[in-house]
Structures are given as structure tokens and as C-alpha cells.
Design a protein around this nucleic acid. Sequence first.
RNA 1: GUGGGCAUAGCUCAGUUGGUUAGAGCGCUUGACUGUGGCUCAAGAGGUCGCGGGUUCAAAUCCCGUUGUCCACCCCA
Length: 462
Amino acid sequence: MRRVKPRTPPGMRDFTPTEVRQRTWVIERIRTVFERFGYEPVETPTLELFETLKGKLGDEGEQLLFKVLRRGTALEDLRLGRVNRVEVTDFDEVVDYALIYDLTVPFSRFLAMHPTLPMPFKRYQIQRVWRGDKPQRGRYRELYQCDVDVAGSASMLADAEIIAITVEALGELGFEEFTTRIGHRKLLDGLVESAGGGEHFQNICVAIDKLEKIGSDGVREEMARRGVPAEIATGILKQVTQEGPAPEILKRLEAPLAATRQGPQGIAETRELLAILSAMGVPEQHYRLDLRLVRGLDYYTGPVFESIVTRPAIGSLTGGGRYDELIGRFTGQPLPATGTTIGLERIIDAMKEHDLLPAAGSTTDLLVTIFDEATREAALRLATELRAAGLRTEVLLKPSRGLKQQIAYASAKGIPLLAIVGPDELAAGLVTLRAGPRDQRQVPRDRAAAEARTFLDALAGS
RNA sequence: GUGGGCAUAGCUCAGUUGGUUAGAGCGCUUGACUGUGGCUCAAGAGGUCGCGGGUUCAAAUCCCGUUGUCCACCCCA
């Protein structure tokens, strides 16, 4: 038989036990922070109806969706070889579902279907999402996202809490040098309007978003290429690149934005948001106002945020914002909402770089060695008792000659403790507990579980 | 979609200006070692050198194409 070269789909990965333990550790820390603020867990399906996701992610996002072929169409005849050609005139005719692209759209659909939840509803959701991107550093096709969102509140209290959670979560994971950039769609809207570039809003946003990367001149070129008049580009760049403390920047924006539709509200909201963050005691080095922050997704309507670390250069670790109109697209009733995503894969990549991940560890506390046929029963009985006492206990599930192989197995698996019940121990009513070549003690058989536990605690403490 | 690097055993990789039968480590299988430093020792299985074509007396090695993968751009977590 022809062998299949083993490989995973592009951008999708296997995780070894050690990696899964590390990832679980990180997820649990993030979950702890979410729950510390009173957020509740929610889960939604892996697939959504294509119509649910359609028109919410922007052209770019929608292109990256993994779509699922509808069953029972003419395509099925093609698969079975009944026909060799199929004509498709309507996309929806052949696609009915898609793998979820983010957790925000599914959550919005969820809210629309569960109107009786206590409001404001604060939920967190940790699941896989899929994107048909071209994989590269920090970019995968299958990834975990950890979302926290508040629905049913238009108050900046909600946005501030989301930012506070972001900062606390990154701190909890051991990051020290990170910043959450805070922008505001209404400020941006006002700026563009005051510069007379209303009709170019999308193009201007795309260009401004690249400011960090390509610099002022680059943005000017980008705008020119996208048909934005030079004087408008210059006007916007001047506003967006101004330096100084946030209150002063906002003060300076007052006059130019006074006559715009969204500007004054953007200024007021941003001021309030910053005031709340300050009142909450969120460390100032971890957030800053950044008028340049745009963020690509279509559905943002208010404050937007993203967190970056200086090292490694893998883009943002978190990203989110307010989306007051998304849920209304399912119900017809507006329901304000805001939230953020913590990208697990990039968090892990960054933690690796900073050496913040916990040591390998083990899922097993101890291995009871099976000395020989005659003592096997005694070993199995001890293992059962240790398990009953709550210790994670295993025996080697294959015949082995002597202890060497069993010790080697325990070592390879990182099992910290060995319990040996050989003929000598059996005769004396003892068990040998062994943590290492020079670290072993004999304890009474009936105290094995308690002694093992103190031994393990001592090992963990040292 | 555009550009660049890489592709040799299940995994990580070595392989000299093109020159005999393509190697190592890890892992796997078998055997030796009758209660302990995470082994050691012996043997073994495992390869269309990504695929297709070309140059040459001779190609893992040089050339062209193709596919895969990684990196950068776009966008994003």
C-alpha cells in the first residue's frame, strides 16, 4: 500500500501533552481573570449558517471563511461521477455553513436568540476559530480565541472594564512590557469629516492603520493611490500624529470636530473612558490613547483597542472594540455591546519568546512499579488505593524486566514519584517512595497515600 | 494574490569541486543485564533523496518546471 506522508493541514498544528498542559495553564489563568470580573462562560457551535456570517466581516474576512459545501446539490453528482460538469449560478446554492471566523458574530447571534438574559450580560467564550489566511509567523488557520464581552450597556464603564481585564490578563500571564492602544471610531469619523474626506472614509482608515509601519510619507502615498486628495490626507495626518498627553490632544480636537456629526461624542466618550480607567487604577504605562488605531472589522462603532508587546514582532495580542449595531442586525432592535479578543496562539508565541511558560510538568503524580508476577497484585491494589486517595497514579501497562525500564518510563513522562513494592517491602509491610537516585524513603504500607502526598508537596515546594 | 528561503529515514538533521552500496542522533523492534544515577551493550526494520523533465560516462548534489512548506507584503489574534 502506498504510504501517506504524515502532515497536518496548512496552518493547523498538533499539540503534544506538554504543549496542551502549557496551553491549558494559560487558558486557566485567562479564565480566572474573566471570572474575577463576573463574566460567565458560553459556548456556540463550530459552524454557523453562512447567512449568519455573511456581510459582517468585511470583504477580506469573508474571503477567508472556510465554507462548507451544501449536501445534496448537483455537486454530489459530480463527486459520484454521475456528471462531469456542474453549473452554479448562485453561491448560496452550494454553500450553507461556514466555520466560525471569530466569536463576536456568533455571540451576537446568540444574544439575539436569548433575549431574557440578565442585562448587562457579561460573558466569556474560549473556543477555536478558523481563518483561511496564508499561514506565517503568529498567523494560523486554526486558533483559539478568548473573548470577553459586555452586551446591553452603552456606558464607557463597560469599555473601561474590558480594557482593565485585558491589562490584568496580560499581567497575570507575566508580561511586563505591553501597551493597549485605544482609539475611537467616532473620533476618526469626525476627523475625516472635518478634513472633508467623508466619502473616502474606508480608504483613509486603511491608510492610517498602516502609519506605524510605513510612516507619514507612506500613508500619504497610500492615500494618493486610493484617490484621496493630498490636502485632505495632510489635514488628517496632522491631527492623527499629534503628540502629548491625552487630555491635551482631546482639547485640541474640540474646535475642529465641533461641527462634525460624531466628533463631539467621540471626544466626550474618550474622556470618560480614560477617566474611568484612571479611577479603576489601571496602570498608566499599559494603555494609551492612539488616534491612529483603526482596526479592520466592519462592525466597530465606538472605542477600539488592541494590545501589543515590543517583542516579538507578531502583531497584536488582543483586539476588540464596541459594536453597537451588530446585534440589531439579527433582531432589528439595537443592543449595544463591547468586548475584546485575547489571541491564545500569539500569547503563547510571545510567552515562549519571554520564557514565561511553565516547566513541562506531568499529568501523573506517581508510578507504582510492578516488581514481578508475584508482587503484581499487591502493586495493583496499592495503585487503586492511591487513586482513591486522589493521587494521579499509574502502572506501566506492559511487561518489563526489572525496575530500570519502569524508572526510565517515569523519567521520560516526567512523573515525579515512584512507589516500589517488591518482595522486601511486602514482607516488611512497607512501600519505598522514590523521587530520585538519592531521594527515597520507606514508609509504612498503610500510610502510603499520606506520605506520598507530603513527599509530592515537598518536591513541588523545593 | 506578489516576492524570497527550504525540501534527504516516522522526527531533527549531516552529506566535500557531481564520483563506489546515502549517513548520524532520537524514536521503533528483538536480544543480553534477577531491586534503582533516568541506563548500557548487541542486532534489526525503516529511503522512488518532494514530484516531473533536462545536462552528464556519472546527479541527493547542476539547470528548468511543478507541488509542498516556512518567511516577508496585504489583512489579522
